[in-house]
Nucleic acid binder design. Sequence first.
DNA 1: CCTGAGTGGAACAGTCGTGTTCCACTCAGG
DNA 2: CCTGAGTGGAACACGACTGTTCCACTCAGG
Lengths: 192, 192
Amino acid sequence: MVEQQRAAVADSGTRTRTRRAIVDAAVALLARDSGASLADVAAAAGVGRTTVHRYFPERSDLLAAIGADVLEKVEAATAAARLDQGPAPEALERLCQEYFELGAGLTLMFDSPQLMTWSGWDEETPADRALSRLVERGRAEGTLDAELTPEWVQSVLWSLLYSAWELSRRREASKHTALTLCLRTLGKALAP
Amino acid sequence: MVEQQRAAVADSGTRTRTRRAIVDAAVALLARDSGASLADVAAAAGVGRTTVHRYFPERSDLLAAIGADVLEKVEAATAAARLDQGPAPEALERLCQEYFELGAGLTLMFDSPQLMTWSGWDEETPADRALSRLVERGRAEGTLDAELTPEWVQSVLWSLLYSAWELSRRREASKHTALTLCLRTLGKALAP
DNA sequence: CCTGAGTGGAACAGTCGTGTTCCACTCAGG
DNA sequence: CCTGAGTGGAACACGACTGTTCCACTCAGG
């Protein structure tokens, strides 16, 4: 019976796939139009509006799921960048490459912080702290400009990533070119 | 009679003051919440909702007025920076200082380009062209990194300005400190 | 085959923002 | 003082989005 209940909440197979389709479509859509309706999300996901409400009773439930999803990916990307290994500038470069893969999630994180008002966004996620630690290490080692505060470095990192992503989204540069520009700019800006 | 008609469209004195109050309040409000209602704008401006509709019959009329207003300020700021005088890096610094004064208009320009869909925003304003010319000049003179394209430099300029403005808006730094961080970062990033 | 999980669509009520109309109020200038 | 420009508020119709219910359909697995 307990398994029945659990199944009703998060079954495997079809349910998982449908849920993913909705969340992914919502991320891509809301990144372009933060005012998109649930009907738009449903259409983008290729499902009926009813189905969306079946998985996420209220709009806020969908938003929370998106927040959790993006947060999870950010944490995974941060872990993959192994920030505590090697010179700080190179670690930052790895982090940029990982974050760049977040794609539309990048846009949501950057210009919809109001949208990201779910549980675990108190300006202090593990990823934030890991990045802060890295910047502090770089300043101490003399491999990062000590004039720049960790908060500012973080802002610059996100805004340059956002700019690069938008550049490639608007077809003004390939993803590779955009990332290269971003890395070169960031590297020079943060060098001592 | 002609004067009567003109007066009905854009009288001087009280009407001009009320109009300014509405536009300014709308810029400040929409920068924080792009989904703010006209009732919110009216409240923020300290006028009745009816009055807003008297000056801007439809929502799109208000948005167009905001677009025109911001555009005008951007052009004025660009002119004040005298981009064709002195070394390119210094001209860019002057431009940053001017643009930083745009305040909330900065936010609207940056993350609400969809909102800026009025007449004169065809990705090619005079200010855009003046900035492009400046960057080209700097590249030719060897005072700006030739690896960075004018479009990218423009993106970086706006995103760093936006970051700096947000930093000061969130009280994480004074306006002066934020601008200093921005200028230092931009200067290093764009140096050859 | 047949059963139930998963789904889509139609229909409905409720809410909110928009745009409009109308009327009473204020107050500065003649 | 008094007149009219400027205003605010109430009320209304309308449309869009939301959240809910109900029913018919599909289709994979036992």
